[in-house]
């Protein structure tokens, strides 16, 4: 298999798409996809909660961890995981 389990974090560098980590609390965002190299298990779970491309979510907090609301579920994600979720450009 090409994908190692548990390789959660991806380094973030300038010029790459915006991630969930950079969205201000209190605002909504649209999911674009997952950063390359996001672990399979993490993708599965996030997908199961409804984080598929095109879906909107709202950001409740960014500290101490990222808290988002999708449908009526609140989900807490540590920063390395939030950085795996890419956000579509504002429209």
């Amino acid at each position: 298999m090409k994908h190692k389990p548990h390789s959660h974090s991806v380094p973030h560098h300038a010029g790459s798409p915006r991630t969930l980590r950079q969205i201000d609390p209190g605002s909504a965002a649209r999911v674009a996809g997952f950063a390359a190299g996001t672990a399979s298990e993490l993708r599965e779970r996030l997908l199961a909660y409804g984080l598929i491309p095109g879906q909107t979510l709202s950001v409740i907090a960014q500290r101490p961890v990222t808290v988002i609301q999708i449908e009526h579920t609140e989900l807490a994600l540590e920063d390395t995981l939030a950085a795996c979720i890419e956000i579509a450009a504002a429209h």
Binding site: H6, H8, S9, Y49, H72, E74, L75, A76, E78
Partner: peptide, 12 residues
């Protein structure tokens, strides 16, 4: 082994 980052649901 490596640490697994937090991901959890917060029930109402």
């Amino acid at each position: 082994g490596r640490r697994i980052p937090l991901m959890t649901e917060l029930p109402p």
